[in-house]
Design a protein around this nucleic acid. Structure first.
Lengths: 331, 331
DNA sequence: AGTGTTATTGCAACCGATCTCAGCAACCGA
DNA sequence: TCGGTTGCTGAGATCGGTTGCAATAACACT
């Protein structure tokens, strides 16, 4: 395959470069026969335009970066999946950027994005810090964030209603007959995590029962710690709300290792609605976030902003997803 | 931030473009003072070179595509994670490409890669088909595959020794006292899946016990089907080897829903060594693949090939990772 | 026939780098 | 002092496209 530039196609079709260019990117500007002829020739040669050259010249590309802290976390993986799809439905090419929670890397990715003329970017932040970094770039105003953002209405966001989600979980548990419901938080840092926790505290108090936050630290072993705390209690709650599905998995696993059964001994409900939850043991009851919608909406918001400058803040409704990890309280 | 091209830096530093260029990409070719001066000026302006322009001119970029069928599968997620790291340790930028098993998409990605002057690519194939697609590109000879490849020694590969892995699993189970050991296969299509199955069949026969392949179909519900098959048997095996961790999860989950306990009633061992397995209920005993090594090695192989044209086939050793899903046979 | 539009296409500069080649100054030995 | 290196820098073409502008063709109308 010798280098296939626009010029060779032009020559082969007997027209000028610019005509070939137009045939591809501004079809209405070239006579139909000519265009069809060019396209046919190009096809025959197996020619495609160089996105690099295009980006360089037009100062805008179809690369759209998705910045996530950890692709290993199934939530982000599912997000990435739906976003890749949403992206190339619209002719974009998603670039996955994994920061591992390193703000320096976030910064690096931002400058890289700018250099690549990305029309916009999507950020699923690990910590509030990331959104700070964001603001240091004028690029910052072409980013949509999958989290709540504080004190900056200029950036579009899409989130799920945390309070509503916790409420749903609580209601589900109440309806099952639980009155003592604990909470295990996830990794702190995001507004979302904060919101869920706050919601739990508030709603719990409102319903008259004292909130029981199981010690969970702020690291990956939140689940384990929470489980230990549970075991040490004289009067442990009969149900546990986990800040997210991963934490729920960890809690159930840790509990299981100590001989505590779910849902027989305690009910556990997660928050996320990961597909993985269906294959957990037991299948995880959880508050489902419409992840696929989030992905699509994020891209729509970005495009919308790019066109008319509008900045929306979409809040989606979570849903209860009952599987096997909750049941009536023991005894 | 007005456009920051090499020319503005040149002007600001009072030198010619080409000197700035050299200051960055061929430091030894420019006088030290000059270089330092330029670098300082550039720094002050917050200038970085445009990877696009560079790629266009040099016909080689630092984008390296990682093509996976499904990022939602934790195995690929972990691979992606270690590869991003390995990549940017070496100054590359990993582009995650998700095919969802669609060969057409694989094709599309390949041409995109070529267009972006990727120096090489990494493919973790979902099916044998993908590697076919690969060969249609001259790019094909700058790809390393994370799987075995048949009939084409020209492409570097890195895999883990399937046979050895199954052997390890079998030995572990035997040493625990199991004699009747079943197998649940994963999604068919990759050589790896095939190899594991073959190894099971062979080794099982060699050890004198009749192989018991639990019906698992070829789709996502392999685990469920396997579990059902297990339940229907008059004399079910006392232990099960799952083709990979995800299948193991599904099997345990399905079994659990039917009241069968792991490892009390049946032992289950997986294959992969996913981090997630540690948080499963029970924590999954498994044959661990050195995923991180695979990522690094894949990149090394690619670089090596690019330099001296050598094509290696690395086969890594798997390890036993004992957690909680295996124990002695019941009764 | 003369002139004004409109539809197409060609020309050439430009995007932000790289790289070959040539120019020039300093340095070396004879 | 002069030819020969060597070291460093500038010129300018080039990578693969895009796009404003000019040129030409085609068609309509008076």
């Amino acid at each position: 395959m010798p280098d296939l530039s626009i010029d060779v196609v032009a020559k082969a079709a007997g027209v000028h470069r610019s005509t070939v260019s137009r045939a591809f990117s501004r079809p209405e500007a070239v006579k139909r026969e000519t265009r069809e002829h060019i396209l046919r020739v190009a096809e025959g040669l197996g020619y495609t335009m160089s996105p690099l050259a295009q980006a360089l010249r037009t100062k805008t590309s179809t690369f759209i970066p998705l910045i996530v802290p950890d692709i290993t976390n199934p939530f982000f993986a599912e997000l990435a999946k739906t976003m890749t799809q949403a992206a190339d439905e619209r002719g974009y090419q998603l670039l996955l950027c994994v920061t591992n929670g390193d703000p320096a890397k976030t910064d690096g990715y931002f400058t890289a994005m700018q250099a690549m003329y990305a029309p916009f970017g999507i950020v699923a932040p690990s910590t509030k810090v990331d959104t700070e970094a964001m603001k240091r770039f004028d690029f910052g105003h072409k980013v949509v964030v999958i989290d709540r953002v504080e004190g900056d209405d200029a950036v579009p966001t899409v989130t799920v209603d945390s309070r509503r989600g916790i409420m749903i979980a609580l209601e589900h548990l109440h309806s099952l007959g639980h009155t003592s419901i604990g909470y295990v938080s996830g990794i702190a840092g995001t507004h979302t995590a904060q919101d869920r926790m706050d919601a739990y505290l508030e709603l719990s108090a409102e319903s008259g029962s004292a909130p029981v936050v199981l010690d969970s630290g702020s690291d990956l072993d939140a689940g384990t710690r929470g489980a230990e705390h549970y075991l040490e209690m004289d009067n442990p709650p009969t149900a546990i709300i986990a800040a997210n599905d991963m934490v729920a998995f960890a809690v159930i696993s840790a509990l299981g290792q100590r001989g505590v059964r779910v849902p027989e001994d305690v009910s556990v409900i997660g928050f996320d609605g990961l597909a993985l939850g269906a294959r957990f043991n037991p299948p995880l009851t959880t508050v489902r976030q419409p992840i696929a919608d989030m992905g699509h909406i994020a891209i729509e918001l970005a495009e919308k902003q790019n066109i008319d400058g509008s900045v929306d803040h979409i809040v989606l409704e979570p849903q209860l997803l009952v599987r096997g990890s909750t049941s009536g309280p023991r005894k």
